[in-house]
Write a protein that binds this DNA or RNA. Structure first.
Lengths: 143, 143
DNA sequence: TGTTGACCTGGAGTAGGCTCCAGCACTTAC
DNA sequence: GTAAGTGCTGGAGCCTACTCCAGGTCAACA
């Protein structure tokens, strides 16, 4: 498989794939006689995993570290698992935070919907959910 | 409240607060005789809301649009609600995706744990969860 | 009155993660 | 044999979201 095909299958741009290779996230890329990169089907699994790590906020640098351990073979299994476990904690924190934000935005939408239904303005204090320390405030335009 | 205090309360750096003002995310900042920015307590609620939007992936540019509508007062309530509703969809998608990634990473960790417990290598195909189209693959180092 | 600390401005620099480009090489189909 | 399509390289450029800096002002306190 050449880079165009890999790009299609992974939905990463050709430039991105070359960039990932450059920084060490994709390794051991062989070439054909013409100098074209030739990829093994199995690389797709790794790239999909990279996308998962990326989607969960791991910086490329950390993934490169992980990739290097992976290159070193089975004796780094423990290290890689530790990295993933740390990252897993991070994902859980993210999920919880995102859920909180989800609920806050939902509440805010409901406030708007209510205000529109009533024909009223947004009530004073409608931002309360977003402040740790407030009792009552003037809120001319509301958030 | 001066900028140092606001920075402490919002946990945004002074530079960030000035930057947000520059791009129009924080408006109507008054000054004292000496030219120092003076903030109203009520601004904190808006900043906390901005942090929620940011944490859920809204670009600053979009927030600036929202902020401008907000400046225009109650007649933009419907527009603002629409923006939030669109963004809410986005948050739901994110949550679902993050949950999927969470589960995949968890599964991967379990595979590692199993391998370590067995003293075995990571089994062939342990990346299956990360590929749409694969049956079996050679997987010398596993992902 | 002097010093210290907080604040001001404009503008440059940074980090992360790509994205684009010029100029060239190779392959494939007609 | 030639044109189209795909690929190559090195390096510059871009976008977002800050972050830092120099050089200056102002206020509060001793």
């Amino acid at each position: 498989m050449f880079i165009g095909e890999l790009s299609k299958q992974t939905k990463l741009s050709i430039d991105t794939l070359r960039y990932y290779e450059k920084i060490g996230l994709i390794a051991n890329v062989t070439r054909d006689r013409g100098g074209r990169r030739v990829y093994d089907e199995s690389l797709i699994a790794w790239i999909e995993f990279v996308k998962v790590l990326k989607a969960t906020g791991m910086p490329l640098k950390h993934m490169v570290d992980y990739a290097q351990l992976r290159q070193q073979g089975p004796q780094t299994t423990q290290d890689r698992m530790s990295i993933l476990q740390d990252h897993f904690q991070h994902i859980q924190t993210q999920l919880a935070h995102l859920q909180t934000c989800h609920d806050l935005v939902e509440a805010k939408i409901n406030t708007y919907a209510q205000a529109l239904a009533d024909g009223s303005n947004i009530p004073i204090g409608s931002c309360n959910a977003f402040t740790a320390t407030n009792e009552e405030k003037t809120n001319e335009h509301s958030s």
